[in-house]
């Protein structure tokens, strides 16, 4: 019997418009652009720090402009989105079974949220925000 299957092509550039869940996924992936650039800013800051007080303070002063404020604000939003998506799916990669029972996802995800809160507070206290 001859068969003539019809193949529907998937667009490599626009496929993610097909469903909201794909858009959520792409948003998560795009966080890497912002966090990646921020990581480079951190590297530059550390480099200036190693050069001495004046270069480091120039670096801090250079941050003080509208473009970097907008960028850092977006980076913060994307970093928060990344954190939520990461913690929410963490239980999938590390299921915990105690005896016959699998721990509900909230245990592993909740543990991450608690650790996140503690570390964030520690960093902010260290930086003298409180």
């Amino acid at each position: 019997m001859s068969r003539y299957p019809y193949v529907r092509e998937v667009s490599p550039t626009t496929w993610y418009f097909r469903a909201p869940r794909y858009m959520r996924y792409m948003t998560r992936e795009v966080t890497s652009i912002f966090i990646g650039i921020f990581t480079v800013i951190m590297l530059v800051g550390l480099s200036r720090l190693s050069e001495g007080q004046a270069p480091y303070e120039d670096f801090l002063a250079a941050l003080n402009n509208p473009f970097s404020v907008i960028f850092l604000f977006l980076a913060l939003a994307f970093a928060l989105y990344n954190s939520f998506t990461w913690f929410n799916v963490a239980p999938k990669a590390m299921p915990i079974q105690v005896g016959e029972e699998l721990m509900p996802d909230i245990v592993v995800a909740g543990g991450h949220y608690i650790l996140w809160a503690i570390l964030s507070v520690v960093i902010l206290i260290w930086a003298g925000i409180f």
Partner: peptide, 17 residues
């Protein structure tokens, strides 16, 4: 890890996990 597989699975297999 798009996670779409687990969202549509009718038997709650959770393939993404």
């Amino acid at each position: 890890f798009v996670g779409a597989c687990s969202e549509v699975c009718p038997k709650h297999v959770d393939p993404a996990a």
